[in-house]
Amino acid sequence: METVADVNWDQYDAALFDLDGVVTPTAEVHMRAWSAMFNDYLEGKPGQKPYTDEDYYAYVDGKPRYDGVRTFLHARGIDLPEGTPDDPADADTVMGLGNRKNDYFSKVLADEGVEAYPGSVRLLDALKARGLPMAIVSSSRNAPAVLETAGVADYFDFVMHGGIAAERHLAGKPAPDTFLAAAEEVGATAERSVVFEDAISGVEAGAAGHFGLVVGVDRGAGEKALTDGGADVVVQDLAELVPEDSR
């Protein structure tokens, strides 16, 4: 496993960042939204335990919204119709529940706002100063709104979010497709790109795409789980990766 001190930024042509939990603490907003939605849905259903943070990390974290719903329901032995993306939020379908979760998320984001992690901004500043192209690769369709709310949209040359992925029929994480497409958009190869991820499914995507460096950001998944998933380096904060000549 590579150490932080070994990272040579001259070896890379692009930096590809997951958003929630890497650049902004919106993973916490997502976690609260998922918990409220699933626990409201599960209430009163015989034999069903409440949804927990462990369920989030095991079944939902890093996945496209509908995939997260589908995976969690499967784990609980619940079979719902798939529905369509146009299903209303009160529909008991996979996509209806996904849309219901998005309503919870949008309300929390509007009420509370969001600020980028200070350490992440330090790294963004350092890489921008080096002229390194940067992209966001997020499963969330809300990524553009979150970037604007946090005031960090101008750092990124391209934003691959869930809506674009759906339009292009790209498989979500842990498949590497969205990262590969983002690297191509900023003119880089996988071998000369760095992936930053806090989700196990995300580091798995980076490893599957044979990216030059996969950085796991431990916001709760655990260093071992991230390393086992494919992270080459695990940090607690992206400030640990700021180049020496930028400190």
Rank of each mutant, 00 (worst) to 15 (best):
1 M>V: 15
2 E>T: 09
3 T>Q: 04
4 V>R: 08
4 V>E: 08
5 A>V: 10
10 D>G: 14
10 D>L: 12
11 Q>E: 11
14 A>P: 07
14 A>T: 00
16 L>Q: 10
21 G>S: 15
23 V>A: 01
23 V>P: 02
26 T>N: 01
27 A>D: 07
27 A>P: 07
28 E>P: 11
33 A>W: 06
35 S>A: 09
38 F>N: 03
39 N>E: 13
41 Y>H: 06
42 L>V: 10
42 L>Q: 10
45 K>S: 11
46 P>E: 15
50 P>D: 09
54 E>I: 14
57 Y>L: 09
58 A>K: 11
59 Y>R: 07
59 Y>S: 05
60 V>M: 13
62 G>W: 04
63 K>E: 15
63 K>I: 12
67 D>T: 15
71 T>W: 11
72 F>C: 13
73 L>T: 06
74 H>I: 08
74 H>G: 14
75 A>R: 14
80 L>A: 13
81 P>Q: 10
81 P>H: 06
83 G>T: 07
84 T>N: 06
85 P>W: 07
91 A>Q: 15
91 A>R: 13
93 T>M: 15
95 M>G: 06
96 G>V: 03
97 L>K: 05
102 N>I: 12
107 K>D: 15
108 V>K: 03
110 A>T: 15
111 D>Y: 05
113 G>N: 07
115 E>I: 05
116 A>S: 03
125 D>I: 01
125 D>M: 04
125 D>V: 01
125 D>F: 01
129 A>N: 08
132 L>T: 10
136 I>C: 03
140 S>I: 04
143 A>R: 00
144 P>V: 00
145 A>S: 08
145 A>L: 12
145 A>V: 12
146 V>S: 00
148 E>H: 12
152 V>N: 08
156 F>C: 13
159 V>L: 13
164 I>L: 13
165 A>D: 07
166 A>I: 07
168 R>C: 08
168 R>F: 05
170 L>R: 01
170 L>Q: 01
178 T>V: 06
180 L>H: 00
184 E>H: 13
189 T>G: 09
193 S>Y: 00
194 V>H: 00
194 V>E: 01
194 V>W: 00
197 E>Q: 03
200 I>P: 10
202 G>I: 01
203 V>N: 03
204 E>C: 15
207 A>P: 14
208 A>D: 14
209 G>L: 06
219 R>H: 05
219 R>C: 12
221 A>M: 12
225 A>H: 08
227 T>F: 05
227 T>V: 05
227 T>P: 11
228 D>W: 10
231 A>C: 07
232 D>H: 04
233 V>S: 03
234 V>I: 04
241 L>Q: 00
243 P>C: 06
